[in-house]
Write a protein that binds this DNA or RNA. Structure first.
Lengths: 248, 248
DNA sequence: CGGTGTGAAAGCATTCACAGCA
DNA sequence: TGCTGTGAATGCTTTCACACCG
């Protein structure tokens, strides 16, 4: 009943509740959510800088490119422990990038299954950001017999029936759910039963799952609605950088 | 240079930086970001309950279905001003739903253009959550001549060249960017120049935009990376409800 | 100097706990 | 009695400001 029943050709939604960890920051493990979100942005900027051969970046420049102020960037990096900057110089780009990637767990091997081969599932299957960073797309499932058997990005879409067996056989340890809200909770239960402990959910539904299962939600209609709110109420929310000249 | 260059068949990414408003809460306008995110979830649950004919919902039940605790739900609703619950009974479902929708600006008419007709753009075009809630999909644009002219969900894909003219002619006031990172900043500039002040960005890029432009970002690779972090570091982040029996 | 790293202060958000109304 | 609405307390996050180093 928690299900807003979004059905149709596509399978969508995005969101990310802000569950804080029990105890966090200062320990080196257990970084604050807010910091984690920024780390992913820093990493992206660093990767871009690295592939351009930029050797170092000051906190001002890096922060500008990431759309945050430099104080919080330095604080974020200080939570990571090691010292990656040199005073008077800046941060060593490759070293910091590597450290961030490791901290985020991107040096592990993530075997990802996509469940739901609609437009959104196909979009994700071809998404470069998935293929990079240690994410290995292993399987795509769908319930629709017309879709099963088709090839997407080199992978044959498999029937939902083989979910459990394939997940175990291929050691899938991360799942992306791109399916209608009506099917989401059932599929989630099956994924969990099959041993998956990490789920990225695009269905517009609040999933119930046992403790120990990591779930994140991406909810596009949430983002649209919040945008509508800011547009409606006095214009002027800014999520982007206020037109400063920033360019790593 | 802030661009991580994600290219390919699809056009993806999701994220949402947490830009707080200047002064917020208590005034009735300017609700905290965190509250806004939850309001959209409450609204979804309320809509579901309403279409099932449930007349009232207690804060415990509503909170459970939304995946939050009841204290924060009551606090969130109290920020809205009006009193929508009756002590000893609960909240009047249709009344509260209507109030939330109005507060979020969903009773305005939003004329939305999608820029980028890849898989992700197509997924969004067919997304029921867009058609509901006052969002009216007005136009879809793409740069690829092979895609221009195709019909998606009843709309013919238009060439990027006509972006400015069409936006003005059809009074588009909200844009969704589902295109590669490499094109994102240029398109954003054009949208802003054409008068669009509300943008939902799926490209994996930090956009620069002048003050007064509302931008939100949805970044899937961010969500994947944060999931990887929790999976890597001691398992156990929970974003879903810890398997309580909640069902509106 | 220029720029990092970090305590201490300020600002937000969440939780508690209870008064008050139906 | 049951459940809302809300001040007060707690706990996070961000910002400030400055010591310290190359």
């Amino acid at each position: 009943m928690t299900d807003a029943a979004e059905t149709g050709t596509d399978r969508l939604d995005d969101d990310a509740a802000t569950g804080a960890l029990p105890d966090a920051a200062a320990t080196g493990r257990g970084l604050p959510e807010a910091t984690l979100e920024r780390l992913t942005v820093y990493l992206r900027v660093l990767n871009a800088a690295e592939s351009e051969g930029t050797p170092t970046l000051s906190s001002d420049v890096l922060a500008g490119a990431a759309g945050v102020n430099s104080a919080i960037l330095r604080k974020d990096l200080s939570l990571l422990g090691g010292s990656f900057g040199r005073r008077g110089v800046g941060y060593d780009v490759p070293r910091l990038a590597e450290h961030l990637a490791t901290t985020l767990g991107l040096r592990e091997r993530w075997r990802v299954a996509i469940v739901g081969a609609g437009n959104l599932g196909r979009a994700l299957a071809g998404y470069a950001g998935l293929r990079h960073n240690g994410f290995e797309l292993t399987a795509i499932f769908d319930m629709d017999p017309d879709v099963v058997g088709r090839t997407i990005n080199g992978l044959v879409v498999r029937p939902a029936e083989s979910l459990e067996a394939d997940i175990e056989a291929e050691q899938v340890n991360m799942a992306v759910m791109t399916l209608p809200g009506t099917a989401a909770q059932r599929v989630c239960d099956r994924l969990v039963a099959a041993g998956v402990r990490n789920i990225l959910n695009f269905a517009p539904v609040v999933l119930q799952a046992p403790d120990g299962v990591n779930i994140r939600k991406v909810d596009m209609s949430r983002e649209l609605q919040i945008l509508a709110y800011y547009a409606h109420q006095g214009i002027g929310h800014q999520d982007a950088v206020p037109a400063e000249d920033v360019d790593a």
